[in-house]
Design a protein around this nucleic acid. Sequence first.
DNA 1: TCTGGGGTCCTAGGACCC
DNA 2: TCTGGGGTCCTAGGACCC
Length: 424
Amino acid sequence: MNETEPTTLYGLIDANNFYVSCERLFDPRLEGRPVVVLSNNDGCVVARSQEAKDLGVANGTPWYSLRKQARVWGLEARSSNYELYADLSARLMRIVADHAAFMEPYSIDETFVRLPARRLDPQRFGERVRDDVARRLGIPVSVGVARTKTLAKLANHGAKRSPALAGVCDFGRYTPEQATRIMRSYPTTEVWGVAGRTARKLTLLGIDTVADLRDADPHEIRRRFSIVLERTVLELRGIPMIALDEHPPPRRTLVTSRMFGTPTSDPDVIVAAVSTFAQQAVSRLRRAHCVAASAETHASSSWFGDHPVFIRATCDFTSPTADPLVIVRDVTRAIRPRILPGVRYNRAGVTLVGVQQEWQPPLGAPEDSGLGEALDHLDARFGRHTVALGVAGLKHHDFDMRQDALSRRATTRWDELAVVSAHG
DNA sequence: TCTGGGGTCCTAGGACCC
DNA sequence: TCTGGGGTCCTAGGACCC
């Protein structure tokens, strides 16, 4: 690399404890206290405040097993409020976009960026982003900057972990010796793309730390693992192998799947759930202006029972479609005969497959019922979920999830606005 | 009693074709 | 005695991400 050529630098901006931070934004009493956010159905912990992490609460812990101790600790729990999080996420991305040359949103709470070509000190860049998001949104973020996406991820971990860095880590500031020392202090599981299975296999080869992985033979890694892990090794050496993708291809599958609040053996309830989930999936499909080629439906009993049951049915549509009438009909017809009597189902879902941009149906293709368009209009005029097909239109269902501690959707619902009062 | 939801990519193996 | 080789497409399963 030519020293005079400005190197491309990647940044990773990641919100701290995003769901908890969202909850705190509209309920400041949660500030400074241990807080967790629960999965759908109030099942298990999916996000924790720093205070909750310090208490030793692990992600994935079932809430029922914590409830008692939570009272002793003063641990607060909230049901997940994805409508709120999605809206705040969009605001976060808009703010970051003001600072970046290119950006690639990576998940609901993080985005990769390419730093502006204008030589701005990476440390200053990180501080500006952090401060601007804090000022305009009120959510704390951490920033990692490095020559590859994998290193930017690692730098971001460091920025979060080390209070002295105050949320910004420019990996390029370290000497080779310092970088090696840091990488020796982290296990391989801290690397983007390495989880338990791979880490265990790496340990057998004597590769325990990030530094070990960086120094491993890439060809050997490719032979024993995959091309993906080989790229990771090179990225850890500062060689960019994973490009920034500003226009990721549209999704190919679209899933709506959920546990039931109460398990059921009643085929009518299961079919009603499938019908409801199918309509939610179609609604997302239509908002993306896409059609689907086929669908898969599944239902299952608890994984933790003695004899877990999993049923599935697939259906290919005559031609790719976004017609709720067709999709709901085919999906429910496919699954009903597969339902086994006497099994307590506690989960169902619909996956739309072969999702693609809207296309012109060929001559002779079955006609669209026009119902989807009508529902879109009603949604736009009267709000979502105003009208639905069949039993999905009812307000309450036997399969509804439990959400005992749901916060307000303060930024997307007029009737759930935050109320602020001042006392003189 | 009670254990999330929504995605991606890679690999291996089988079917099928010439 | 000893059985081609290369290509594509599809599916299932594994591993990972947040």
